[in-house]
Nucleic acid binder design. Sequence first.
RNA 1: GUGGUCGUAGCUCAGCUGGUAGAGCAUCAGUUUGUGGUACUGAGGGUCGCGGGUUCGAGCCCCGUCGGUCACCCCA
Length: 428
Amino acid sequence: MPEFQTSPGMRDILPPDSARWRRFQSVFAGVVESAGYGEIMPPLMEDLGVFQRIGDATDVVTKEMYDFDDKGGRHVALRPEQTASVCRAYAQHRPATPWKVFYAGPNFRYEKPQRGRYRQFDQVGIEVLGADDPYLDVEVISLGWEFYEKLGLERVQLLLNSLGEPEDRARYVDALEIYFRANLDGLTEQSRITLDKNPLRVLDSKREFDAELIAYAPRIAEFYSPDAAAHFDAVQQGLDDLAIPYTIDTKLVRGLDYYRHTTFEFVGLTLDSAQNALGGGGRYDGLVESLGGPPTPGIGFALGLDRTLLACDDEGVFAAPNTDVDVFVVDSTGGRQALRITAELRNAGLVCDRAFENRSMKSQMKAADRSGAAVAIIIGSNELDAGTVVVRPLRGAVDVNKQREVPRRDLISAVTKAVLLAVKEATA
RNA sequence: GUGGUCGUAGCUCAGCUGGUAGAGCAUCAGUUUGUGGUACUGAGGGUCGCGGGUUCGAGCCCCGUCGGUCACCCCA
């Protein structure tokens, strides 16, 4: 065992997984940029207070923050999510509205790690600040939906709910609390603790014992104001217009305190129920204000990379991209020729690799095969003397007769032709 | 944070009721003195997560600890 390993919940993303991650983020960027979203890259670390605005009833804020005093005595924290940073940035820079941004990058939460849950975890997401239009809710949700489609995922379910206006939500919370307090016998110990902290979250319990009481609990829909009901209706109509299927889930209350109106979650149906949330979001307000900005409505979502990739694995879609090279240069004269030839080929736009340490030709050919290259360039003392190189197709059966010796100056054109031919044969 | 479970070569794992460590794959080399996929031969590679204890003797038993994983919790 090596002396040092990654800390718990932290890991190295190695090739070819790293290429998959990068493609994941670029597919996401493609989807949201097509809708006019620009990337925001907030710092990894902010004043602790920025994140405390998320809500002091949440574990994310109270127990899971990576916070410390920096050398200047500032109490800072690694971001546990990015919505708060986006709102802080809005309050700080005051961009024109609606401000549509997306982000991609790591967040940090000090949790006990599990599969699909890490202390450093990547999310992609979008936020829109400064517009309170139900059709914006639909746009945001549809972009998440479209992203899953682009990845190739099919077993994804969209759960939808509305928490109403803040006053609706408050009245509902009161009613819930009264209901649960009158029926404490029907709640598990855990749920009673949750009830003290945040009655809404009792609805989230997946414990069987709680199920019956939750099933007969008051419904948020009974508390909607006319405006809230109209907003929610418009969102549903919009989703219908776009033929995006959704399931109303009145028990869907998001983890963080600042949500109101529309909330939604994307669930991976192939995943175990405890870890099946691929992403979620909703409409919020008060957050910008609490960070020193003007009252500003916001909506957004965040999608977790890890679980989404697990879902992709389950469905056999969005595999790691092929990282094979086009050409592999075999040089049995010591390596200097390979140095010059690879430089030439790369200049011409070809992806190529070579062997080092002057290994035997057989060994270099093996490396060429392993590299996945379509073509090998071989140069030995004969070719060096004759001013030629050997162009050898590598796909298919081993057959020395398929290779050609060409003048050194025809290298680029001969290789390009051979690579194209190999690609054509592969797709035929 | 609480509980269950696992931790042997780079990877996946085997190792009987305790008797001083094995396979497959991978790597390197050779069979083939200039040519890859298959085959054959050989080589390198392990303080059995770490630390204590019991024992004549521990990969195996006991305690602790670290890490993975699962459930709870929380959440993406």
